[in-house]
Design a protein around this nucleic acid. Structure first.
Lengths: 197, 197
DNA sequence: GTCTATATGGCGATAGAC
DNA sequence: GTCTATCGCCATATAGAC
């Protein structure tokens, strides 16, 4: 049926685009991966560019509401922040396709697509995060603090292939709970953990 | 002369690869950009892959010693950390090609190239950073703390095209000194800046 | 909706003259 | 060391039958 084929193509496309990037993915390769002819793929999408845009949309829509339970729960601000960090680390570690597509979108940095992403995917979560940080006592640099939380988690995870080869690395450094715990410790106490608590 | 042509090709290749990625750069486009024929480019490099590897090496070699003055100066550990964060933010903001190539390498995450990058570019700087953090009083999670410093600066800068469209953004958020100052404040005091000092 | 076949053009890489 | 010309292949995309 039409919808099933289209969704299957999209799902496969998400994986291919996230692994290889737009230019390196061929319509032949995609058609081969889904077990169809090139012409059949072109029946569902007018061209490669449109297919890519739909694939990005498809991948990001899945994650848009992953954090809703965090914000709606009856918790203190500190607990909400903790849950958010855990959740973010979990999503970025589990859904590798999402994480890599995100990285590629930031690299391309097409302004039109960035606006769309900001508005449709991130703005809501970001506003919740800023509200939580405001409740925690920070009154001036809320935007920057919220950004720092996300940046810290994202880049620690995406630097893993490199940090594996740097001195002092241990296997537990790549476990979701360890990452979340360390990030939260840094956010609460700064780098000198002993001097502050 | 040979060396000049080769270096000019490399410099141009660095820019093209960082902007478009390996697959999207064509030897024809590169040849056109440097004002030579395709065959002339192939006189200097055996194939596209080798050209890419030399280009990455070329771009990273420039930055390898950018931080040496930070570590060798007669400063307290706190001051060294401050200088490092400023320097890193400056390099990542100024040398956009370097930053994007780095991001692309992390995306590809070819393990052989990661090992080479770790050993030849990052290991030395990372060891210095860990030593500084140890001097500051952190005794257990030194690797993770050092990683956090780098991750925070890197991702705040590479998320700029997105954060521009998120609520609370101001133009000063993209100034090098502002970023370094905020990052250092977070590292020293945590997110609740008032509760700790 | 899916197929086979094909049009059209760009790709990486090479041959051989100068 | 650089050129022009070219090889063989793969790319995106379409035509038309079933």
């Amino acid at each position: 049926m039409s919808v099933d084929s289209k969704e299957y193509i999209l799902q496969t496309a998400v994986t291919l685009f996230s692994k290889q990037g737009f230019a390196a993915v061929s319509m032949r390769g995609l058609a081969n991966s889904v077990g169809m002819s090139v012409a059949a793929v072109y029946h569902h999408f007018p061209n490669k560019q449109a297919l890519y845009l739909e694939a990005v949309h498809f991948a990001f829509a899945k994650q848009a509401s992953a954090f809703d339970e965090v914000w709606q729960a009856q918790l203190t601000a500190d607990e909400k922040l903790s849950r958010f960090v855990h959740c973010l680390a979990q999503v970025l570690t589990t859904d590798v396709d999402f994480r890599r597509l995100m990285q590629r979108e930031l690299l391309d940095a097409d302004d039109e697509r960035m606006q769309l992403l900001a508005k449709e995917v991130f703005q809501e979560q970001f506003s919740h995060l800023m509200a939580v940080i405001e409740q925690m006592g920070e009154s001036r640099q809320i935007h920057f603090s919220a950004l720092s939380v996300i940046a810290l988690v994202c880049d620690i995870i995406q630097m893993q292939p490199l940090s594996r080869h740097l001195p002092g690395w241990r296997a537990e450094h790549e476990e979701v709970d360890f990452i979340a715990g360390q990030v939260l410790n840094l956010l609460m106490n700064g780098i000198k953990s002993k001097g502050c608590q």
